[in-house]
Amino acid sequence: MRRAFIISIPYLWLVALFLIPFAIVFKLSLSDPAVAIPPYVPTLDLSTGWTGFKDFLSQLDMENFIWLTEDNLYWKAYLSSVKIAFFSTVFTLLIGFPIAYGMAQAPKEWQATLMMLIILPFWTSFLIRVYAWMGILSNEGFLNQFLLWTGFISEPLQIINTNIAVYIGIVYTYLPFMVLPIYATLEKLDPSYLEAAEDLGCSRTSAFWSVTAPLSKPGVIAGCFLVFIPVVGEFVIPSLLGGSRTLMIGKVLWDEFFSNRDWPVASAVAVILLLILVIPIILFQKQQERAQEAES
């Protein structure tokens, strides 16, 4: 009885504020926009009973989804979001792994400090960290001044408002999400595995590739999910660092909703985004559960 009570509170909360809202998004994606408040039809009026519900159902259609397939913008935005998310995950991994490895190899008394240094940016505002790059990447910004000073370039490069700036921003802000899970697995790695590998004839490099790398897989996978999934729907970074040619679906959804006030299309965009992400999200959840089971 008491157990059921404890289960029910967070359960009902999540059903009410997480699951039901998705159902509404789904329903709305099948509605049509209208000049009204709220700006869509049909609205469900329960006072008319069963016929009202049937009437309501009959007015739902796939029109928004058809519209999404017909307009190139959406396809391109989805593809480009997935592409940007994929490559920035790869870059984040390439930069994050050596950092996590260096942290795990550092002397014990250093590890707490290094850990804090990785977490600190994570606690500071995301928005501020993206903003910091606006000043650096702009045409008169720091990077250009530095490159001009070194003589690598003779006139400022256009970095801000390009995809390069978006990549930099993503790698920068998501780096801790990659470093922390990798560090956690590397730190737990029994050093006698490496000693055993060397004892059995491995050089340091081959011991890394045949033991450390495969055993750090859970951390790498978790890190990649933690970067890839949210980046696909990222809004702030493309909006502040990207240009008009940076197509990302999070930004399209935002514009569709706030600028065009086309709620049904925005909902349809969200539903498709969710469909794209549902497989990685399920994989991520399964992996998290497995990791937790392995620990207990």
Partner: peptide, 24 residues
């Protein structure tokens, strides 16, 4: 379902969470 609802918001794009709550 419960564990799904716990883990999914960790990675759910904010635009989706925001939109769905607004509609609610």
């Amino acid at each position: 379902l419960f564990s799904g609802m716990i883990y999914a918001p960790l990675v759910m794009p904010e635009v989706i969470t925001g939109l769905s709550l607004l509609l609610l």
